[in-house]
Design a protein around this nucleic acid. Structure first.
Length: 884
RNA sequence: GGGAGAUUAGCUCAGCUGGUUCAGAGCAUCUGCCUUACAAGCAGAGGGUCACUGGUUCGAACCCAGUAUCUCCCA
């Protein structure tokens, strides 16, 4: 047998993923004998490719799902994709443009045909990529938010909520991209730092109660604005009510420069007195804050812009000119008229379109809204009372702050890719809402009292629904809970158990799923929400395409193995904290795979000799105790969703306890056989470790599972039972005694290092101990781990020896001619000084009457023990010094 | 402007009910080793004013108040 000294994941991973699928391990169906465990994937964009965020998120889900499967639960992980209306439509538009086709030249049907064709071709690549990561989804359950059944669910819900009076149409300020001719969501708008100009304009005061108009200095109020071309849309000038400079303008009227229209001066606390001149022109149609001021003061709205960013007739001036041309021209004209006081440069932020880079125009438009107040209340309640737990819990505050004052949800989008809003307008402009055109017609005829109405007389609303309006139904719709509310799947798998997602969408998605779950099924959609952090680079920058700081996950998997990447990502990602990704992490993950691989190579090479007596009971019993303790610790971490800590627990168990200690203890000399009982125990430990590792590193563990022993049928680690935690007799004693022995080993090794002695040089240890039985029992182990040629008890300090003190006993390592007495004395004195200081501090504490009176008995007992230990140590050190 | 969270080793973070070891891990660093599983390794070592200032307490990284800095969310 010859096994490579380094583990090669490429050979292994594809093979096992295929075998798992062939065996149907990932398939889940309702099984009354098993407890269900359900996770629905946060559906990635159908046209997306795997990025580092997906890797983290899906690795965590897979770990949870694989562990649940091993625990004997009916583990169901539902995969799928999201139609992501904005992102996908943008991609399709861009693709068509490359082919010389403009969206505006297509009908809606033609465009959708292109989009579906594109989705068929490129959609779902990301799901294939997830398989390379090892994601154990039930692929037969793959869903898509725009497939017919899920679309039906969306329409049903829209109609239902409309009929409940929760959906309405209203005016809202949207981010309008004049170049793209569409509204954008806040996520598609990028703030850009620019050097902008602030124009100071004079508005003539035409009347004011407390003002003498003769006074030349007071005939104007100066207003600062960055957008002089919008003055034609002004409806007021606002000042802060506490601003002493403008108190006399109560009730005053001023005249818009050039235009001459009269508007009022109003007082509003929104205005900051020390910005600009403290006087703000109010233009409700073209600024969100102004719009809100307008609402407060009952001001009219004058919209002077066309959809393409040019000025319309309402502007009266510069009609037809682009907003930026109009700005240049009006500045010239204002200057000529002597109404421009000054122009200042200032650093500002403009909002731009992510796609067209055009400057966004805030625009008022008629949109569809969902009232959320009634839905939010119960959704807040279930998080407050712990029915749903957020991990880490700090997100509860954030959730509360949103849900206490929910804003209505704007659910319409001016796009084609998505579910078209099922609202139909009658010729008279009134509307009906229904799932189908036929149903709408029936309603419309009744409404209009006109039986002659035809479908062609109805016009369906052009807008589609926000993508979140389909994804909020995801935990229900993937199980056909709308189509068939009593079906076996939804009854068994819903509510789901855990949801793993990013905090950015806590409100967009998580909160809304909770609302939908409670509203449509009367039950929460999941019990735990695990919030991952954002994956950043080592400098803390968000990973992004434009920065080019994100490695390609598939390259990483190829170079480091899926197991290496999975563990690498988890080494540094406690829940809710951002993950600062560093190649060092995946290297560490790969090295860990390699460590496990080499441990296997070692054990695989051992030959059993049935004639040999069982020789390693100490090591075996100790490791059994360690294993039980670590398993308990691991389970506790999992229960608290401390996945990184869970990994670190297994990592240390495998690397430190199993490889560095246990295997070294039982390892036979080169080409010597091992006793059969120890080998059998070792293999059994190895199997347990593979099980514990499997959720984190599915591939290498499956490979080694099959290498370690012949396997038949369904004997895969993937479905092996999760290790129990057997009670080990005298576990604490075993550990304490082993720690004593390892302390001795450590003392000897330290001396080796200090004296620069080769590990191959065997040493002789002398011990002045009150526990000879320990020395006796652990002697063979000490010999092996510390490379000793002899161990003897002694009552006096030998001459040529270096000593150390451990557990109140003195140990000597014989070293002829290598003793520097001065250095030895200095080292011991330093240690003694330290021990004495420690002793004094404990004594001080113990002699404090209040401490003795108030401290709990176990604390007191611990302090007494510390004092006794310190005294023993001091005595031993003093002895050692004396004997030098 | 309002709110939330954070600040512990060079870096990333634990530290759970205030008291195990005058503060823990991983990585990094330094020293020595190619010791027959693994140099993707082994053995060791160093590294801390627990942001600062006060307070509560017999006792504070932990509780309280204030200050500073940073991050995020909302406006």
């Amino acid at each position: 047998m010859s096994l490579a000294t380094t583990y090669n994941p490429l050979d292994v991973e594809a093979k096992w993923y295929q075998r798992w699928q062939e065996m149907g391990f990932f398939k889940a169906s309702p099984n009354p004998d098993k407890e269900p465990y359900t996770v629905v994937i946060p559906p990635p964009n159908v046209t997306g490719v795997l990025h580092m965020g997906h890797m983290l998120n899906n690795t965590i889900q897979d770990i949870l799902v694989r562990r649940a499967r091993m625990q004997g639960k009916e583990a169901c992980w539902v995969p799928g994709t999201d139609h992501a209306s904005i992102a996908t439509e943008a991609k399709v538009v861009a693709l068509l443009k490359e082919q010389g086709i403009e969206k505006k030249d297509l009908t809606r049907e033609q465009f959708l045909a292109h989009a579906f064709a594109w989705k068929e071709k490129y959609g779902g690549i990301i799901l294939e990529q997830l398989k390379q990561l090892g994601a154990s989804c039930d692929w037969d359950r793959t869903r898509f938010t725009m497939e017919p059944d899920l679309t039906d669910a969306v329409l049903e819900v829209f109609v239902d909520l409309y009929n409940k009076g929760l959906i309405y149409r209203g005016v809202r300020m949207v981010n309008w991209d004049p170049q793209g001719g569409t509204a954008l969501s806040d996520e598609e708008v990028l703030p850009k730092n620019v050097q902008a100009k602030m124009y100071y304009l004079r508005y003539e005061i035409v009347s004011a109660a407390g003002l003498t108009l003769k006074d030349a200095d007071k005939q104007y109020i100066t207003v600062a604005t960055s957008r002089p071309e919008t003055i034609m849309a002004d409806v007021a000038v606002a000042v802060n009510p506490t601003d002493p400079r403008y108190q006399h303008l109560a009730g005053a009227k001023v005249r818009i420069p050039l235009l001459g229209r009269e508007i009022s001066v109003i007082f509003d606390a929104y205005v900051t007195a020390d910005f600009g001149t403290g006087a703000l022109k109010v233009t409700p149609a073209h600024d969100l804050n102004d719009y809100e001021i307008g609402l407060r003061h009952n001001l009219p709205v004058i919209d002077i812009l066309n959809d393409d960013g040019s000025l319309n007739e309402k502007a009266q001036l510069y009609v037809g000119q682009d907003r930026f041309a109009a700005r240049r021209n009006i500045v010239k004209d204002l200057e000529a008229a002597g109404l421009l006081v000054k122009v200042e440069e200032y650093a500002s932020i403009v909002q731009t379109s992510e796609r067209t880079q055009a400057v966004i125009e805030p625009k008022l438009s008629l949109q569809w809204f969902l009232k959320t107040e009634h839905l939010a209340k119960p959704a807040l309640e279930v998080v407050e009372n712990g029915t749903i737990q957020l991990h880490p819990p700090k997100f509860k505050n954030l959730y509360r702050s949103w849900m206490e004052q929910p804003r209505d949800w704007c659910i319409s989008r001016q796009l084609w890719w998505g579910q078209q809003i099922p609202a139909y307008y009658l010729p008279d402009g009134s509307l009906v809402v229904a799932r189908t055109a036929e149903a709408a017609l029936t309603q419309a005829r009744a409404k209009a009292g006109n039986e002659n109405l035809q479908i062609s007389d109805l016009r369906q609303d052009e807008d589609v629904l926000d993508t979140w309006f389909s994804s909020w139904l995801w935990p229900i719709s993937v199980f056909d809970g709308f189509k068939d509310p009593e079906n076996a799947d939804i009854k068994y798998f819903y509510p789901t158990n855990d949801l793993v997602t990013a905090p950015e969408i806590l409100f967009f998605w998580v909160a809304r799923m909770i609302m939908a779950g409670l509203e449509f099924r009367g039950e929460v959609p999941f019990k735990n929400v695990y919030l991952t952090g954002i994956v950043r680079d080592a400098q803390g920058r968000k990973m992004s395409k434009s920065l080019g700081n994100s490695p390609d996950p598939l390259d990483l998997i190829r170079d480091y193995g899926a197991d290496g990447v999975r563990t690498g990502m988890l080494f540094s990602s406690p829940a809710g904290n951002d993950l600062l990704f560093d190649m060092k992490l995946v290297e560490q993950g790969r090295n860990f795979s390699n460590k496990v691989w080499n441990a296997f190579r070692l054990v695989k090479g051992w030959e059993a000799d049935a004639a040999l007596p069982y020789a390693h009971g100490l090591a075996v019993d100790w490791f059994a105790a360690r294993l039980a303790a670590a398993t308990a610790e691991l389970d506790e971490h999992f229960e608290k969703f401390r996945i990184s800590d869970a990994l670190l627990t297994v990592y240390k168990l495998v690397w430190d306890d199993f490889c560095a200690l246990y295997l070294e203890m039982v390892k036979p000399a080169y080409q010597q056989p091992i006793d059969a009982a120890t080998l059998q125990k070792t293999i059994s430990f190895f199997e347990t470790l593979l099980k514990l590792l499997h959720p984190f590193m599915p591939f290498i563990t499956e490979e080694l599972w099959h290498e370690l022993a012949p396997r038949t049928g369904r004997d895969f680690v993937c479905v092996a039972p999760w290790p129990q935690r057997p009670a080990v007799a005298d576990a604490a004693g075993l550990q304490t005694r082993m720690e004593w022995a390892l302390g001795v080993v450590s003392g000897i090794r330290t001396i080796r290092n200090q004296k620069q002695l080769a590990p191959t040089k065997a040493l002789v240890l002398l011990a002045k101990t009150t526990q000879p039985e320990l020395l006796q029992t652990y002697g063979p182990l000490l010999r092996k781990l510390a490379n000793l040629s002899g161990i003897q008890r002694t009552d006096t300090a030998p001459a040529a020896a270096v000593s150390f003190v451990h557990a109140g006993a003195e140990f000597f390592v014989l070293l002829e001619g290598q003793i520097d007495l001065g250095a030895e004395r200095a080292r011991l004195e330093k240690e003694l000084e330290y021990a004495q200081g420690f002793k004094e501090s404990v004594e001080r504490k113990l002699s404090n009457e209040k401490f003795a009176a108030n401290a709990k008995p176990d604390v007191l007992e611990r302090e007494r023990q510390k004092l006794a230990d310190a005294e023993a140590k001091i005595a031993a050190l003093e002895q050692a010094l004396k004997s030098l």
